[in-house]
């Protein structure tokens, strides 16, 4: 497929080795997707969509892993590239909304032109299946209240979205523990199962891979459909705690973007291709296999949805400050 296409093209190009770009119709070369995290399951999500979208456009869309500073490095890298539609921002919440709120970036979500939203993934609090101390979430909170700062947990990086959502719940319940950071949240799974952590926050991909070795205490979302991903586990609100965030706010999601000054016809071409790619049944099935839910929001809903998330996340940032002040 990709390989065969490349070889035939390569042979054609041997004849005319150098051409000036712009002479032909967009796209006449590979488009890059600048992905803000390290390689792994989540990157596969972007690769699935990129591959399908590349088929629509008849070019390759390599997903370039550019981790660093919670996604800020990827955004800055992409911003350095020209606004010609050949660079797509894989716009995750952290660099798009959180980084500006935390003062780590000088852009806002309004500085980008959206293509389509891709997927969302929810978070959950998990413990070891045989950990009898914590039959449910209130038991965990009781333990934390009785032993302030003694419960050890990880959410990946300390100022990431999962920690923010958790911090909000902890603040509401007025309990705290000791946070131990990892670069990526998946890495904490080993130490949960090895007994170092009392609980960790997980995402659907990691949960699905480890589902027989962990137990979900609570799902960090108020949406009914998320419960199914975690095999019917209770939500925070089912215990009577207020999550304090609604809709997409307590979830990870990404929205593919291009630079604001990208020509309108190029944006249109990319949007059409992405919409067609996301609509494919096999693409949807693969995404769901990995526990990621296609969100199917169009570019016209971007301002409304992303704007609302930004407003709610501010309260999460305050919660994280509260948790960190207890460390």
């Amino acid at each position: 497929m990709t390989l065969f296409r490349s070889i035939t093209k390569g042979l054609a190009v041997l004849a005319v080795s150098v051409t000036a770009s712009g002479a032909t119709e967009f796209p006449d070369r590979n488009i890059e997707n600048i992905y803000p995290w390290g390689p792994g399951t989540t990157m596969a999500i972007s690769q699935i969509i990129a591959d399908a979208m590349g088929n629509e456009l008849d070019v390759s869309i390599p997903v370039v892993s550019t981790p660093g500073a919670s996604g800020v490095k990827a955004f800055k890298t992409a911003l350095e590239k020209p606004a010609d539609g050949y660079t797509i921002f894989d716009g995750y919440v952290a660099p798009l909304v959180l980084a500006p709120l935390l003062g780590n970036a000088d852009w806002s979500y309004k500085d980008f032109t959206p293509l389509y939203s891709a997927t969302s993934n929810s978070f959950a609090i998990i413990v070891r299946p045989d950990d009898n101390r914590f039959p449910d979430l209130p038991a965990l909170f009781d333990y934390m209240r009785a032993n302030p700062g003694k419960a050890r947990y990880s959410t990946g990086a300390v100022n990431n979205l999962p920690h923010m959502v958790l911090a909000k719940v902890l603040q509401t319940a007025d309990v705290y523990g000791t946070v131990i950071p990892f670069d990526e949240s998946e890495q904490a799974m080993k130490d949960l199962r090895g007994g170092v952590f009392d609980f960790i926050i997980t995402n659907p991909g990691t949960y699905k891979a480890n589902k027989d070795n962990v137990r979900v205490l609570a799902v960090l979302s108020e949406l009914e459909e998320v419960v199914a991903i975690y095999d019917g586990a209770p939500r925070v609100q089912d215990y009577g705690y207020d999550l304090g965030m609604s809709g997409l706010s307590p979830m990870g999601w990404n929205w593919w973007l291009v630079r604001k000054d990208t020509p309108a016809d190029v944006v249109e071409t990319l949007r059409t291709a992405m919409a067609a790619a996301l609509a494919r049944d096999d693409v949807q099935e693969k995404l769901l296999n990995l526990g990621y839910v296609p969100t199917n929001y169009g570019p016209d809903q971007y301002d409304e949805i992303v704007g609302a998330v930004g407003a709610e996340l501010q309260s999460g940032i305050d919660a994280i400050e509260w948790v960190m002040s207890k460390q």
Partner: peptide, 22 residues
């Protein structure tokens, strides 16, 4: 050809826009 086409690397384009086709 090896990097730009087989390995899908986007080689430097340059500001005068002469690119290696892919």
């Amino acid at each position: 050809i090896v990097f730009g086409m087989l390995l899908n690397v986007v080689l430097p384009i340059g500001i005068i826009g002469i690119s290696f086709p892919s």
